[in-house]
């Protein structure tokens, strides 16, 4: 044993050297430096630059003319932008009021004691989320075709809708098709969060509630909902932010266009078209900042209403 002691002390001796102390002190700075350098270059600079750009009219990256607030004035008077905001808002509405309740309902069922094969079911519900929006877009553009498409065949079989229903070329049906597709993609995804939250709720609380004579309905409101609230608010805010960034799904499903009568035009699609198809990066920045502010206001509003404002940290 004595030899090992000396060994350690020999090894330990040089560790008080200046190099060792220095590397210990500098380590955290070195470790975060890649993040900080990249963030300064590709985060801070673009943020400042895009604020500036939003006051310019540009033609590609090379030319820029200062126009003051004209971009914003034009944006708010552009009927195309109104259309994009409306479509995006409608999509977000269905995401919050149809998709999230479905996710929660599914999670509640899956969390009940009765269910067999919970892991496998969870896997099945979650699986569509593995497919990127582009691939889902290509797949569903074929599933939605009139006559032969699987959606029409299925809905004709169960609900008797005509098989020649033109989901993607009838302006009135574009949004329902998008909502259906996103339900398929995201119901299971959000369910995973709800399920994890439900499983983390303290079981003793249910027992206490049962002792106090609370029925299942009361338990849901008094125990379950408060228990999953932080996660529910997180899911609500994230899925709203996600909805407002909708682009790829309609862009691909509608064959690189805004669709009939621009029924699938979203805010980000509008940004992409003005900035990178027309080539006005200044105007694209204006659209971007308007989107960011809108999303921020809505997120804060949601956190306020759900009462997560003060408790946001936990």
């Amino acid at each position: 044993m004595a030899t090992r002691e000396t060994e350690i002390s020999i090894v330990r001796a040089p560790r008080t050297s200046r190099w060792f102390v220095l590397q210990h002190r500098l380590a955290p700075y070195l470790f975060v430096s890649p993040f900080l350098i990249l963030f300064a270059t590709f985060g801070v600079y673009p943020i400042v630059k895009s604020l500036l750009l939003s006051f310019y009219v540009t033609n590609g990256p090379k030319s820029a003319v200062f126009v003051g607030l004209q971009n914003f004035a034009f944006l708010f008077s552009d009927p195309d932008f109104h259309k994009a905001v409306w479509n995006t808002a409608v999509f977000a509405f269905w995401s919050v009021f149809l998709q999230l309740p479905m996710s929660l309902g599914l999670a509640l069922l899956l969390n009940s004691l009765w269910v067999k094969g919970r892991e496998l079911l969870r896997l099945a519900f979650f699986s569509p989320n593995l497919l990127g929006q582009v691939f889902v877009g290509v797949l569903f553009s074929v599933l939605f075709i009139p006559q032969y498409g699987l959606v029409n065949r299925f809905l004709h079989f169960i609900a008797g809708i005509p098989t020649d229903t033109k989901w993607l070329s009838n302006p009135d049906l574009v949004m329902p098709a998008l909502v259906l597709t996103s339900l398929w993609m995201y119901v299971g995804f959000n369910m995973v969060y709800f399920l994890a939250a439900l499983q983390a709720v303290d079981k003793d609380l249910y027992e206490a509630a049962t002792v106090d004579g609370a029925n299942a309905w009361h338990q849901f409101w008094a125990v379950t909902l408060p228990g999953i609230k932080p996660v529910a608010v997180f899911v609500l805010v994230m899925s709203t932010i996600g909805s407002f960034q909708l682009f790829e799904l309609p862009w691909i499903m509608l064959n690189n266009s805004a669709g009939p009568d621009q029924a699938g035009l979203t805010i980000v699609m509008y940004l992409y078209q003005t900035g990178f198809v027309t080539g006005d990066l200044g105007y694209a920045s204006t659209v971007g900042w308007t989107l960011a502010l809108g999303v921020l206001i809505i997120s804060l509003f949601q956190m306020r209403v759900t009462g997560a404002w003060k408790g946001g940290a936990d």
Binding site: F35, L36, T41, K49, Q245, V268, A284, L291, A292
Partner: peptide, 27 residues
Amino acid sequence: AIMILMLSTMMLPGQVLMAPLYELIYR
């Protein structure tokens, strides 16, 4: 400060920076 910085960037939709980022990458 770094933590706050990170949290706030997570709130910012990536598309906001698309135009200036493209300009930067171009340069």
